[in-house]
């Protein structure tokens, strides 16, 4: 059975169309990433799915249950980490877990087990205000797991975390996936989406732009690799743009960046060109095409400063 089935989802906020005809599915045992810049419609999609917003059109089914008509039927099946959720400053992880365990009709032992599972035992009696970002996100994830969900919805779960905490959280999410949980997460972190998600749904302006595995998306977009070169004397961009496989060459600071669709041919041609003209290589980097490049190709615009600043 499909874990999450979203069909033709539409949502407006006054004159603003937040979602239009959004459709996708998530099956058990896979991680699907909703990828898009800020304001793309990721959070609106997830909030409709969680029953926090009522869609204007379309259907949402969680394990076959209509989540729009009967949100109460699906509440026990979904665990959620919300983007803007914090807890009271003075509450401790143990109190928070026990409270939400009781609200979900789970025994206190469930809360205590999650303290251990999410490595929060040492911080069990510490106020929420004193927890680090990583500890807070682990607590949020532990809270999401209280009802033993088969569907996990995570809205930008690693936002603001340091790399170590992010890796730790990724590992925990993969473990849940491997246990058969369906995971739907939103992110505007291209690298996170590329490395963590089994499938990616690219969303922009409330529409789905593309959908598939990371490799499929890159192949479909035909995004170029980049060769960044610093040489003395510096070759002209026009010379390098004419190399085999090269699409363009631009000067960036004191370097030249070659955009190529055939990295091997271009590198060979570049080596010959440099040797023939007596250019000494000072520095050279090759960057494989990324989802950001794919996004640029698919939408015709860059991902935006919010997405790229990390």
């Amino acid at each position: 059975m499909t874990a999450v089935c979203v069909r033709d989802l539409g949502k407006r906020y006054g004159d603003l169309v937040a979602l239009r005809e959004v459709s996708f599915e998530v099956t058990h045992g896979e991680i699907v990433g909703l990828l898009g810049p800020n304001g793309a419609g990721k959070t609106s999609t997830l909030e409709c799915l969680l029953g926090l917003r009522t869609p204007d059109s379309g259907t949402i089914a969680i394990e076959g249950h209509d989540a729009v008509a009967h949100p109460a039927h699906v509440q026990g099946r979904i665990g959620a980490v919300l983007q803007t959720t914090a807890l009271q400053d003075a509450i401790t992880p143990r109190e928070a877990l026990r409270l939400f365990a009781s609200l979900h009709g789970q025994p206190r032992t469930r809360a205590d087990a999650l303290l251990d599972e999410f490595s929060l035992r040492d911080k069990a009696r510490e106020p929420f205000a004193t927890l680090s970002g990583g500890q807070r996100q682990r607590l949020a994830l532990a809270l999401a797991f209280i009802p033993t969900p088969r569907v996990l919805v995570l809205d930008e779960p690693t936002a603001g975390l340091d790399p170590a905490a992010r890796r730790d959280l990724h590992e925990r999410i993969r473990r849940r996936r491997d246990e058969g949980c369906a995971v739907l997460l939103s992110t505007h972190d291209m690298a996170e989406a590329q490395h963590l998600c089994d499938r990616i749904v690219i969303i922009d302006g409330g529409r789905i732009i593309a959908m598939g595995t990371p490799d499929e998306l890159l192949a479909r977009a035909g995004a170029p690799a980049r060769i960044r070169l610093r040489a003395r004397p510096a070759p002209t961009p026009a010379d390098l743009a004419a190399l085999a496989g090269a699409r363009a060459c631009t000067a960036v600071d004191d370097a030249l960046v070659i955009h190529t669709i055939d990295c091997g041919d271009t590198l060979a041609a570049l080596a010959r060109h440099l040797a023939q003209h007596g250019h000494a290589i000072l520095e050279m980097h090759v960057t494989a095409p990324s989802l950001e490049d794919a996004f640029l190709h698919l939408t015709g615009k860059s991902f935006g400063p919010e997405a790229t600043k990390r």
């Binding site: 029953g51 979904i78 959720t85 009271q88 609200l103 009709g105 809270l143």
Partner: peptide, 22 residues
């Protein structure tokens, strides 16, 4: 209002307990 600003009530909304009861 402080709990609402922090998103505590959003979290409550995701539990099976009706908000009026909470």
């Amino acid at each position: 209002v402080a709990e609402r600003e922090r998103g505590v009530w959003r979290h409550f909304r995701l539990t099976p307990v009706p908000l009026p009861a909470l």
